[in-house]
Design a protein around this nucleic acid. Structure first.
Length: 173
DNA sequence: TACTGGATTCACT
DNA sequence: GTGAATCCAGTAA
């Protein structure tokens, strides 16, 4: 079933943890969320200073915040917190449906390597900033199938340059 | 108007 | 472990 908008009302760190095990679905593609990262009102977050781009994180919850990075990749976030800025970056998924399409788009035959990174998810799902600002469950859906996974906190992928490790959650292997 | 560096990924050493 | 690819938001002037 689709999760409610109120799911995204708490602070990002809470939502980030709760999102693990939920299903992200777009068109005929889907995957289980296995890694997230919370951004609140701290220096590592775009929301730290309010700008035209980051206003979405201040003014909404339960909307998609998609931005372009390093000239190559998009990152998919969901805005949170109804009393201030916040968003959760979707960092990793386990592929469920449409795996052959994802493989073709990613030019990658390895299922384990298909969606294990924020840029990879957007490439495989064909997500770009046209969807920025749209409501969750409008085009991209988040579904709760009651999957329970063991959650671990701390750094995992992409730790090389990331300064922001406080609220990263991933599935315990 | 021009400059700077990034919530990344991949290929290479 | 290092560097390139590559665009654009943010900032300063």
């Amino acid at each position: 079933m689709e999760i409610k908008k109120s799911f995204f009302r708490p602070k990002a760190r809470i939502v980030a943890k709760e999102l693990i095990g939920k299903i992200l679905s777009y068109k005929n593609l889907s995957g289980i969320i296995t890694e997230t990262e919370a951004y609140e009102n701290d220096e590592a977050s775009h929301a730290f200073r309010r700008t035209e781009r980051s206003a979405l994180m201040h003014d909404s919850h339960g909307k998609l915040y998609i931005y372009f990075i390093y000239g190559n990749y998009y990152c998919l976030n969901i805005t949170t917190y109804d009393k201030g800025p916040g968003a959760v970056l979707i960092r990793g998924l386990k592929p469920l449906e449409g795996i052959s399409i994802m493989k073709r788009r990613r030019n990658c035959d390895d299922t384990d390597n298909l969606l294990n990174g924020p840029g990879k998810i957007c490439q495989a799902f064909n997500i770009d900033k046209k969807l920025n600002g749209s409501l969750v469950n409008d085009k991209i859906k988040v579904l709760d199938n009651n999957i329970k996974l063991k959650i671990e906190k701390g750094p995992r992928i992409g730790i090389k340059k990331s300064q922001h490790l406080k609220w990263r959650f991933f599935v315990k292997e």
